[in-house]
Amino acid sequence: MGYFGKVLSGFGSLLTGMRITFSQFAKTFFGRKNVTLQYPKEQPKLAPAFRSAIKLIRFEETGTHDCVACKACERICPSYCIKLSGGKVEGIKKKRVAEFEMDFSLCSLCGLCIDACPTDTLEYSKVYEEAGYNRDWRVDLVAEFREYEAEFVEKQRVIEEKAATAKKAKAEAAKKAKEAKKAKEAEKAKEAEAEAADTAEKPDTAEKPPALEAKPAKADAPAKAEVPTAEVPTAEAPKS
C-alpha cells in the first residue's frame, strides 16, 4: 500500500467512525430514544441485591423488629457505626433494644452485622437518594418501631405467660407420665422378679431407675442427648 493508499484507507476509517456516531445521533434525535433515566422524574429500578445502609426488619408475625440488644452487630462492625442500648423490659423475659443508633456516614455496607445477628432482624435498606445540608447522618433505627413497642410487649407477655403455663402443664404432664412409667416399670420388674425367684429378696429401688434412664439416652444422639430426651416425653405427654 503506497502513500495515497494509506491516505485513502485512513480517510475511509475516519468515515466509518463518523457513520457510527451519526447512527447513534440519529437514534436519539430522530428516533427519540435515549438511555437517560430522568432521575427526579423517574425512579430507578433497584436490583434485588442492592445494598444501602442497614435497617431493622419488620416481621409479619409480631409487627415489629426482633432485636434482642445482644450487641453482636455492634461488636462486629468494622466501622464502629452502631451504638445500641437495651435490655430487660418490664413484664417480659425477652430483652429488647431501646436505642439503635446507626451512623450512615460511617457504614461501609459490608454486611457483617447482618451475618452476625442471631435473630436475623437486620437487612439492607433501599434508601438511595439521601443528601442533606448537615454532616450528622446518625439515624435511629428503632424510631419507627417505638409506637408498636408497648403492643409488642403486651403480646409478648401474653405469649410468654401462655408459654409458661403450657410449660408448667407440660412439665407436670411429663412428671406424671414419668411417674406412671416408673410405676409400670416397677410393676413389671416386680412381676418378673416374682416369676424368676421364689425366695423373696426385694429389688433395690435405688439401683434400677438410673439404669433405665441411661438406656434411651444411649439410643439417641450421644452428645445432644438432653434436648431430644426432654422433648420426647413432653410431646408424648398430651397424647397419652
Binding site: Q43, A53, K55, I57, R58, F59, E60, E61, D66, E101, F104, D120, E123, S125, K126, V127, Y128, E130, G132, Y133, N134, D136, W137, R138, V139, D140, L141, A143, E144
Partner: peptide, 21 residues
C-alpha cells in the same frame, strides 16, 4: 419469618432535624 415490604424506599428518620428553614 416473613417480612413486610414496607417503607423500603422511604427515608431514614434522622436523630437531628435536618430540614432547611
Amino acid at each position: 419469618m416473613g417480612k413486610v415490604d414496607k417503607g423500603d424506599l422511604g427515608r431514614f428518620l434522622p436523630l437531628v432535624d435536618r430540614s432547611a428553614t
